[in-house]
Structure formats: C-alpha cells, structure tokens
Design a protein around this nucleic acid. Structure first.
Length: 804
DNA sequence: CAGTGAGCGAGCTTCCGCTTGACTT
C-alpha cells in the first residue's frame, strides 16, 4: 500500500527536493553583505557569510612545523565551528559553490580555507570577486568566475607564518628577560617605537624664544577707517633687537609699497578610508579610534554606509552618479566636478569602495547622536569629493616704513567661489595657527597707512607633537604597517600591555615679554601663558621604553620602520609566482631564530636599571628598575647580607625621571596616620593608587591629597565620606543575617554575601527579595561558582581586559 | 580590588588579520 503511494508520489518528491536543495551557494565574509547580495540574486541563490577567517594556526601552540618545511597546522577556530558545519551542509547539496570573499590576500586565503575545511569539490567551486555591492557588479562577477589563486594564498600563508614566528619567539624572550606576559610583534613593536622615539625627541627639544612683530594699521575706505593686520616676515632673536626696531618705528610713516594679487584654489579631500575617517572623527568629533569603528559598524549593519574597513578612495559609478544628482539639485551644476581619486598609501589592497553613504540622497541617518554625527561627516566628505574647487584670490601687501628698510607684509584672502567649501573642509593636526588671513580693504600703491600699534611678542618654538591615537594610525598607514581591520585593535593592544598610556596633562605657566609701541611710547609688559597642556595624547610608559630599548638592541631588523615594506615586497614575489613562500620564510627564520637563541643564552636580564644615588641611612645603592610587577625602586642589592627593600613606583612617576628624594619617600609608606574610634588608620599606595586602610576596609585617597602628608582629620573625613557612599549602595539588608546584602553595582543590583557576589534573577524586583530567596541564590550560586573556576582561563583573560 | 620584587619551578602569558555577537558582579 505504502509502496504504491510512494511510487506514485515520486515525481512530487523530486520537485520538493529541488525546492529545498540549494542550487547556488554564495559565501561572502560579512553577514550584512550577504543580506544585501541575496536581494540582488534570484531565488536560485542562497548567500551565506563565513564571518571572516574560519581557520587559523593553533591559538596556544606555535602551529608551524618548522622541521617539516614550515608546514602550517591549521585548526577551525573555536567560534567558527558552527559556521563551518552549517556551510558544509549547504555546500553538499549545492550545485555550485561561489566563493565570493574579498579580492585581496586575506580574502583569497579565506576562500582557500573554506574550500579546504568544507572539503569542497573543486569542480563545482567557483571563485568570484566584486569591489562594489551593486546588482550589475555582482551579475558581472557571476559571469566571469575563476579558480582560487594559490600563489596569492601562499603569500597570505607566508604573512601569517612570519607574524606567528616573530610574535611567538620574541614574546617568550621578553618574559624571560624583562617581565612576564609581555608581547612583541611586527606591528605593535614598531607602533610603540614611534611613540617612544617621539617622546625622546620631545625631551631633547630645546625651546627657543624669539620676537614676532605684528602691526595694526588703518586705511580710510569710503570715509570709514578699515583695519589691516600685518607682520614682519622675520623674527628678532633678542628683546634688544626688537626694542631697537620699535624705537626706529617711533614717528615713522607707513606706505603701501606693493600690492600683489594672485589666484589660488583649494581642492577637496578624497573620500574616506578607515584611516582618514578615524583621523577626521578624532579631530572633528573627538572620537577615539575604537569608538569611530564601533559607530561605523552600526551604520554599516543598518545599511546606511558601505563597508568601513577599507584602504580604497574609489567610488563606484553609481555612487558618483548619485552624488552628481544630489549636488546638482542642492547647489547647482556649477558645483559639480567628477573626480577619480587614487590611493597614496603603501600596500593598499583596495578590495572595497571608499567609505560612503549607501544612498547619497539620504542626508541624515543614524539611530543615536554619535551615529548621526559620523554619518553627517561621511555624507559631507563624500559629496564634497565630487564638487568643484574653491577659487580664492590671495593678496600680499608690502608696507614700507619711512625710517628703515624693513617691510611689513599683510596678507588677505578673498573667496571668489566657494565650491566644495560649501559643504566640508578637512581639518589638520596643526594646533597652532597664528597666521591670520582675512579680508583686506581696497588699497592703492603709495597710500599712507596710519599705525594703531606695533607689537613685539616673545614666541617660543614648539616641540614635535605627541601622537594621538588617530595620528599614530596615520603614521602607521604611511609606513604601510597594519591594515584597516587592525588599526583600532593595535592601539588597544599597546595600551593593554601598558607600553603606552593615553593621557591628558595640564600645562605649566610660562612667562613671556611683550613690547608695545603706541602713540610713540614703548611699553614693556611681562605676561604669562599656559604651555605644554596635552589632551588625549599617547605617552610611553617605563615598560614601553625598556621593552623598546631591548628590542632595538637585539632585533633592529624587526624594529626597522621599513621591515614591513621589505617583507611585503617578498610577499608580492610569492603572489606573482616568482618565489616559493617557504623559501622566503626560511631565509628570514634561521638568522632570526639564531639571534633569539643567542640573546637567550648571552644577554643579562634587561630591566632598565638606573642608579639614583645612595641611601643616606645605610649608604646602600638606590636603584630604579623593572621588577616582576612593574617599575620599582630598591635599596641595596640581592647579594647583600640583608635583603633589599622594595617599593613600587607610583603611576604618576617614572623610572626615567624619579629623583632620589622621591624614591626615599616611597619607602615611608605604609604609614600610620593615627587612631579613630579605637582603630588604627594606615596610609599606603596599592595597585589602584593611594589608599587608607581602616578596620580592614579600604578608602581611596583622592588626587588632591597625598598619602605622605594626609592628616588624621582629613583621613577621618574621607572614611566618613566613604561610609555614607557605602550606605547609598545598599538596596536591602536583613536583620537576621547581616552578612547578606543586596547592593547597587555597575551593572545594577547584585547580591553580596561574605565577600562573594552573586547574580540576581532578572524577573524579580531586588527590593522585594526575601532572605530565603537570597539564601537560595547563594546555594545555586555555588554551582555557577564552580563552573566559573573551571572556566578560569577564559574569564581571566576577560577581566584582564577591563583592568587596563 | 589594594601586603608582591632574590631563587626554586609548576603553569600561565604571546603574533596579525578577517569577521561579529556574547555578556559582564
């Protein structure tokens, strides 16, 4: 009976199977991209994402079989197991698998890894590429498939293996010679070097003063006085020279000697890449590099902008078309100028478009303030890039002085046609812009100008600017080091390792002299200004400096700013099939490895030791150096009869600059402050800064107080403040059991009992929990507690992240 | 979350580049 039915139904089963079966499986890297593309292709296509790389070298082991001609040992990444098994299932039934990963070295490798780990039948496997997400681009790609470029894959393998070998041989060397848990790598170590070297330049910089002379003049224009600001083209080195000049200007007459007018133009900046977006968002919106990427990711996922990790300045034809229409409609055709930009950066691989709005006619987008502001920036930059030049007229007026051959120069700028400036102007990193260009009144040659005053002001040369996160990215990109997807992570790595800190520092007062000539009288004034203030700049730490010096001493090759560029040339040779990838690695590895071995055997511990002086009490040496837990000072040597004394250096101090006195102060802690309510108060400095300990509780000492000098009264005040704060934290207490409390924490209410914390059930009001319910939570909590200790390896890493 | 620092030795750390969520006591 059943058999008859099944035979009769067979044709229907076949149709059904055909319907379920995927005819074409397309695999791309990003899920957002997959969604868009699926809309372009018909019902016969299913588009899935690989979520980036699916396979990599072992996370913990070296993962390279050096003996066996550097064979990489790949593993499916833990978080990609599900992805791979799903893709495997789909690909089995598919007639054709289209590998549509990005067209660059990494993208080619992802396709190859997919083919390998999905065990794809190469006969039904087609490799396609497109640079823009448009229907035509994708249809075109489908029509011209190719096979996987194994040379390009090999170039990626070489890149991967080289980075692994460098990172996993240098880091352990640092653990032994400097301090545990440190790291070194082709990218991060050079990033740190840039910051350390800039700091050194700043320390060695000698500030020079000179006198800048400006004059304010009047010219009559339509019966009204108009002002003209002018400046002497050179500066005086001394106050005396400046004074002599002003003396000469007494009773002098001023004439227009020459007027020179010439046209000038300004050109818009290229559309955004990852790096330029990070720079502009930092300058214009004050975003950190990671915030920019987070916000951009959201805009991308909601379909508002194109892909945000790109090194290309290229816009698709459709994008240019949309921009043209938008400009024409909003500003008029005279504002349109179609431009093709080409990349300037080393090693760009241009697998994507520039970062631009998906739809140019959408002028505002984003679901919160950050998104809206970043979108606005992207929209303006993209539109401006297709607009006409701004036309200017620059005027230089030379003003003669009757009593000397010196001339003042006044410069003016008139905007003749605003062009792209109507929408957007790129900002610069230059902090000081003393040049003042404004509009000049109409002037004639020989015309006399009346002086209001002449000012000679002492100005100082400035040291090179410290890097911001964004300007470091710019520098790395110029050197061809790192990729759009790694700029933000690299910057957080070097901060997480405590090689570098991002800080703002208050400036100091500096006096300067100013001489004013007004009404034929010279007046001298002493003034002061704030100098050296820094906001969100990158500073090297002691550890950063010591590790950098160590690597420079033993591994100059890796630290060379051109190292990446040099190996990139080799990777290109591999990609072009001119060289075997394992040969490139071999040539690099053996000399490198010998150096590692050599350094391991021969070099001493590298701790950046610095002798500060002698202890006045014992006559022993006082030394600053890096210890197991970071920078510290010690009195005496380990081989002395008595054990040396140790003290950690405070966060606001550094090994490089700490004085003998400051070091001695560190040994005065912990210090007894006095007694309060019958118990002793002790002041000390811990891992998280200065603190008071009282009744086995800790109270932080705020910045304005010093643990060395804090008085008993002040200490009591701080303890009482803390008591009030702790009270505010309590949501609920139990009379029956005072060790159990419900407290307000960073992530909302939680349960605290005997120093252990527990999560509260989400569906219950924390204020209404009974003691019984709490005891239950604690009981159940023990099981989660256990699972957490077994997971310790994983969570330990996560907490390390939040520590900073 | 706040006492460390020599040496002994267990077991741990680490790279760069491609992608997103998971989830915080």
């Amino acid at each position: 009976m059943f058999k008859i039915y099944s035979v009769a139904l067979q044709p229907y089963f076949r149709i059904l199977k055909k319907l379920i079966m995927v005819k074409n499986l397309v695999i791309v890297e990003s899920p957002a991209k997959a969604k868009t593309i699926e809309g372009f292709l018909g019902k016969d296509f299913v588009v899935k994402s690989s979520f980036g790389h699916v396979r990599d070298l072992s996370k913990t082991k070296l993962g390279v079989d050096i003996e066996n001609n550097f064979t990489p040992i790949y593993e499916i990444s833990a978080d990609k197991k599900n992805v791979v098994s799903e893709l495997k299932k789909l690909s089995k039934d598919a007639e054709v698998v289209w590998l549509a990963t990005d067209e660059d070295r990494e993208g080619e490798a992802i396709s190859w890894h997919l083919a390998e780990s999905l065990k794809l039948d190469l006969k039904k496997c087609k490799r396609i590429v497109f640079h823009e997400i448009t229907k035509t681009a994708i249809k075109n790609a489908i029509e011209s498939p190719r096979s996987i470029d194994l040379n390009l894959v090999d170039a990626q393998q070489a890149r991967r293996v080289l980075d692994r070998l460098v990172g996993f041989e240098l880091s352990p060397l640092l653990w032994k010679k400097v301090k545990p848990s440190l790291s070194a790598g082709r990218v991060q170590s050079v990033a740190v070097r840039l910051i350390v070297e800039r700091e050194k330049e700043i320390q060695e910089f000698k500030t020079m003063g000179s006198f800048r002379v400006t004059g304010l003049f009047y010219a009559m224009h339509n019966g009204q006085p108009a002002t003209i600001k002018a400046e002497l083209p050179h500066r005086f080195q001394t106050r005396e020279e400046a004074l002599t000049f002003l003396e000469k200007c007494k009773n002098a007459q001023y004439f227009v000697n020459d007027i020179e007018t010439k046209p000038a133009r300004k050109t818009p900046a290229a559309p955004f890449t990852t790096s330029t977006l990070q720079q502009e968002a930092s300058r214009k919106l004050g975003f950190s590099v990671s915030r920019t990427m987070l916000v951009a990711q959201k805009l991308y996922e909601s379909g508002k902008i194109t892909y945000m990790r790109t090194d290309s300045v290229n816009l698709s034809d459709t994008a240019i078309g949309m921009a043209k229409e938008m400009i024409s409609k909003s500003f008029g055709d005279e504002y349109i100028k179609i431009r093709q930009y080409s990349t300037k950066s080393k090693g760009a691989q241009e697998a994507h478009e520039a970062i631009r709005p998906t739809y140019m006619n959408v002028q505002e987008a984003g679901s919160d303030d950050s998104e809206r502001r970043l979108y606005d920036l992207i929209w303006k930059r993209t539109i401006a890039s297709q607009m006409s030049d701004a036309l200017l007229e620059k005027t230089n007026v030379t003003i003669g002085i009757s009593t000397t051959s010196e001339n003042f120069i006044a410069t003016g700028e008139v905007l003749k046609f605003d062009g792209f400036l109507k929408v957007y102007l790129e900002s610069t990193d230059d902090e000081d812009d003393e040049a003042q260009e404004g509009i000049l009144p109409p002037l004639k040659i020989k015309q006399e100008l009346m002086p209001d005053h002449i000012l000679a002001q002492e100005r100082f040369t400035k040291h090179p600017a410290r890097y911001t996160e964004a300007s470091l990215v710019k520098k790395l990109e110029e050197l061809g080091i790192g990729r759009p997807s790694t700029y933000a992570p690299t910057i957080s790595t070097i901060q997480k390792r405590e090689y570098v800190v991002k800080e703002s520092r208050e400036g100091a007062k500096r006096g300067y002299t100013q001489l004013i000539l007004k009404d034929n009288k010279i007046d001298e004034q002493k003034k002061s200004e704030i100098t050296g203030a820094e906001k969100n700049k990158l500073f090297p730490t002691d550890i950063g400096i010591v590790v950098n010096n160590f690597l420079l001493e033993y591994f100059v090759q890796i630290m060379d700013y051109n190292f990446t560029a040099n190996v990139e040339k080799e990777f290109d040779n591999i990609a072009q099939g001119m060289k075997q990838w394992t040969r490139v690695i071999k040539e690099f590895y053996y000399p490198f490895h010998d150096k590692v071995e050599n350094t391991l055997q021969k070099s001493e511990r590298f701790s950046g030791e610095r002798l500060l002086g002698k202890d006045p009490k014992t006559g022993k040496d006082i030394i600053a150096r890096i210890g197991r837990f970071g920078p510290m000072v010690q009195i005496g040597h380990p081989d002395d009869e008595e054990k040396p004394l140790f003290a950690g250096i405070r966060k606001d101090q550094s090994m490089e600059t700490i004085t003998l006195e400051e070091a001695l102060d560190l040994f005065k802690l912990p210090r007894k402050v006095g007694a309060f309510e019958g118990k002793e108060i002790v002041a000390a400095v811990g891992r998280f800064g200065p603190y008071l300990r009282y009744d086995s509780k800790f109270v932080s000492i705020p910045k304005q107080d010093d643990p060395l000098s804090v008085t008993l009264e002040r200490a009591i005040e701080l303890i009482e403040e803390k008591r009030i704060k702790d009270k505010e934290k309590i949501i609920k207490e139990f009379k029956e059991n005072d060790s159990i409390k419900i407290l307000k924490g960073r992530w909302g209410a939680y349960l605290s009992a005997d120093g252990q914390n527990y999560k509260l059930p989400k569906d219950k009001d924390p204020e209404k929990l009974s003691l019984e319910e709490c005891l239950n939570i604690i009981k159940e909590g023990t099981s989660t507690q256990k699972s957490r200790t077994t997971r310790k390896k994983a969570t330990g890493k996560a907490t390390g992240k939040t520590k900073k």
